[in-house]
Nucleic acid binder design. Structure first.
Lengths: 157, 157
DNA sequence: CGTATTTCAGCTGTACTGAGATAC
DNA sequence: CGTATCTCAGTAGAGCTGAAATAC
């Protein structure tokens, strides 16, 4: 009944946040989307491109284009996976880590402001509702096929 | 404290919804973002480009590019505003209205599914929290300057 | 064998910046 | 006058599709 309103509010909130993030991160020549990649790498010392794509809700091909740009800027590096000959692990460089830390600090007020109008209970609930909303998570060329697995497994039970 | 988690969840939820919407609307050659424009026009028989940009959380220049595409497809038309010589009012064509109605029907299950994991109270609260989150709303070349107005007015009180 | 990961080429729509014309 | 609305040209990154090479 109010699905449309929720959808529009979700859009407005996301775009607003995205623009405000961009305004901060672009001071270091990094887009908001690239910042998401950097933050995922800062919390996981080394991820394959596919794993990184899933954690950032990105398409693998899109992510690859982003990684090429980040690599060109010397913020990340890609090394062959020691365990999987097909895969490449992605990690922050020293410079990438420095840039991320700087932007993380600069964006602290934004994150604080983001939930400033909400109580702790409200922001916790918002988080929960958003996570419920995005199930099943849709990530091209990853979740689609994986979901059929899950469905198959679930059906097999 | 959990601002980052909320930000990521917001991103994931939005991108997931956006992809699922696209999967439906592209059957009519319309992108998810264009569908947002069509739906805004369906609920407001005639809007200026600026008003439309604000209601869709779009940048005026971005919207113009979208309107050119929609006009080329014969889904919308732009007419000079009767009251403002600078402005142009945007409205759906018959074809645009038909396309919107068709896609609106086709996306009904998506909207239902979007809030299906939530109770009515939860979806209502999610809506409220999202709206709180996006204040102040950020829309390039509109809210920014207008906000200084609001601030100035508020400060003048 | 089939599947998974990455690469590559190519494409489109989105989202801007900056400038200018015109009307309020 | 200053401001607002729109147009236009140009740019960049994001988000794909489809196909291929390679490794599991």
């Amino acid at each position: 009944m109010n699905g449309h309103e929720v959808a529009l509010a979700l859009r407005t909130a996301y775009l607003s946040m995205h623009r405000r993030t961009n305004a901060i991160t672009m001071s270091a020549g990094v887009t908001a989307d690239q910042f998401v990649v950097l933050s995922a790498l800062a919390h996981n010392r080394a991820l394959t491109q596919r794993a990184l794509a899933e954690r950032t809700s990105s398409d693998p091909n899109t992510l690859r284009a982003m990684l090429i740009l980040l690599e060109r800027e010397g913020l990340i590096q890609r090394l062959p996976s020691p365990t999987d000959g097909r895969a490449r692990t992605v990690a922050l460089t020293i410079k990438g880590n420095r840039t991320f830390q700087k932007l993380w600090t600069q964006s602290e007020s934004l994150r604080a402001e983001l939930v400033s109008s909400l109580t702790k209970r409200e922001s916790a609930q918002l988080l929960r509702l958003l996570q419920q909303l995005s199930e099943p998570a849709v990530t091209p060329r990853s979740s689609a096929s994986r979901r059929t697995h899950v469905v198959a497994e679930a059906g097999a039970q």
